[in-house]
Write a protein that binds this DNA or RNA. Structure first.
Length: 424
RNA sequence: GGAUGGGUGGCAGAGUGGUCGAAUGCACCAGUCUUGAAAACUGGCGUACGUUUGCGCGUACCGUGGGUUCGAAUCCCACCCCAUCCGCCA
């Protein structure tokens, strides 16, 4: 969320930003409620001060009557304070709800518009493949090599679940191994994270569990939810903590399962691994100082490029437009891999996404840092980026690397873990 | 899951109803002394919100949430977490 004072002092800026991002907001209502809230707060504090003063006089007063009068006065003041405090708390909750709905500010370079207005920034080193045969999609390739079992997945867990088999398992693990090793070599601390997290943590990161449109599976009779991404648990690691500036930037890479209901994606359901309820992902996450986050964001994007160059997958990088940014994101880059089996003649399909959330998540999660020699604390900036989501990466690898004889070439960097250079 | 003991400022640790935002020690910062350092001594040293041009002042915060009271770190209730032991278990 944004800072309350900032919103009030920069009402026009925030309003324009909401319009650009296609989010409804009522800044005037916030300003109005906050003025009222402040009045109640000041009244409550003043009444409390009077009550404290009264309480302090009681032990000093020797006369029983005077004492009793003071006790009555104190009681009365506390009651008045209570009433004012309650009004304040209700207003604050209402303001909080309104503020939560306001998206982050937007990086000046972000293009305005929707999904089709993203700007193509660059392309990967690997060229789109040209086939002198009719290329198969990953589902067909999987059937040929006995890599997946979608029927059993549906039987056991429902549509959108699947089993990986044989070389797909090796490939899945190889992608995890490669990503973790690569990132560990670039200063990221490998972390294997919980797959469930408490509701306040999800909310802090910007997810809304238990709503009608929620993407999140929740566990009945608990405050736990299956995580949609390790971003939740990595960001949550420092919730409520104050660290020192010397610890920043703090770079983590998390390995977790990801669970998504894909509610609202009906009709966009696709065969195969592309849109599923569970997958495995290696996720980058960074806490930085405010002046470091832009550079860190570019760095994350470039690491994603290095990973997909190493996987020998053709891709493009896009700078996502305003309407397509999630609430917490200040700027977002996606890598879209070329997937020859998607659509009629192949399509770009999102394989990674990296967002700079500036202090939006940190403010909700209360992640702060202290600068040595300076008074007070500041909110950290948070960034996240996909290193490898194994399902989608596998689609890109299988479909791009298929050979005329039906076999599939394993990218060099994965061969040590897959244990062969060719599937089939 | 059962039993017991705990959760207080960066750390250690005192504090069982008012004079407690909280002793003391360590750490840290500044200064005195010193060629320099150490030691010693002196002073400072939490966070958030509100208020003020500023010095400052006010309010809240002793695991979390409720309750009792004019007044709670202190009493009561619930929950969470930690330690140790027992049980169970990959």
């Amino acid at each position: 969320m944004l800072d309350r004072k900032f919103i009030i002092q920069n009402a026009d800026l925030v309003r324009d930003n909401c319009v650009r991002r296609g989010t409804a907001c009522d800044i005037d209502r916030i300003i109005e409620l906050d003025a009222e809230r402040l009045t109640k707060l000041q009244l409550a504090e003043d009444l409390n001060r009077q009550a404290n003063e009264t309480s302090q006089q009681i032990p000093k007063s020797k006369d029983d009557d005077a004492r009793k009068a003071l006790i009555d006065k104190g009681r009365d003041l506390r009651h008045q304070k209570e009433a004012s405090q309650n009004s304040h708390d209700e207003l604050e909750a209402e303001i909080g709800d309104l503020i939560s709905a306001i998206p982050n500010l937007t990086h000046p370079d972000v293009p305005t518009g929707g999904e089709d207005d993203a700007v193509e920034i660059s392309f990967g080193k690997t060229a789109k493949p040209t086939f002198d045969f009719n290329p198969l999609n990953h589902v067909e390739l999987g059937e040929q090599h006995d890599l997946f079992d979608f029927e059993a997945g549906a039987r056991v867990s429902g549509a959108g679940f699947y089993y990986l088999k044989n070389a797909a398992v090796r490939l899945d693990l190889a992608l995890q191994q490669f990503a973790i090793s690569f990132l560990a070599g670039h200063g990221f601390t490998p972390i294997s994270t919980p797959d469930l997290a408490l509701t306040p943590i999800l909310k802090g990161i910007g997810f809304t569990p238990r709503g009608p449109e929620t993407q999140i599976y929740s566990v009945e009779n608990t405050d736990l939810n299956l995580v949609g991404t390790a971003e939740i648990t990595l960001g949550g690691m420092l919730a409520g903590q104050t660290i020192t500036d010397a610890e920043l930037p703090m770079r983590l890479c998390g390995l977790s399962h990801c669970f998504r209901t894909e509610a609202g994606a009906a009709g966009r359901a696709t065969k195969g691994l592309y849109r599923v309820h569970q997958f495995t992902k290696v996720e980058m996450f960074a806490f930085t100082k405010p002046d470091q986050s832009d550079a860190e964001h570019i760095r994350m994007r470039d690491l994603e490029c290095e990973i997909f160059d190493a996987l020998e997958v053709p891709y493009r990088v896009i700078d996502t437009a305003t309407g397509d940014l999630g609430g917490p994101a200040y700027r977002k880059f996606d890598l879209e891999a070329w997937m020859p089996g998607r659509g009629d003649d192949g399509q770009w399909g999102e394989v990674t996404s990296t967002s700079n959330c500036t202090d939006y998540q940190a403010r909700r999660l209360n992640v702060r840092f202290k600068t040595t020699g300076k008074k007070g604390t500041q909110f950290a900036h948070t960034l996240n980026g996909t290193a490898v989501a194994t399902g989608r990466a596998m689609i890109a690898i299988l479909e791009n690397h298929q050979q005329a004889d039906g076999r599939i070439a394993v990218p060099k960097v994965l061969q040590p873990w897959v244990g062969c250079d060719m599937i089939g």
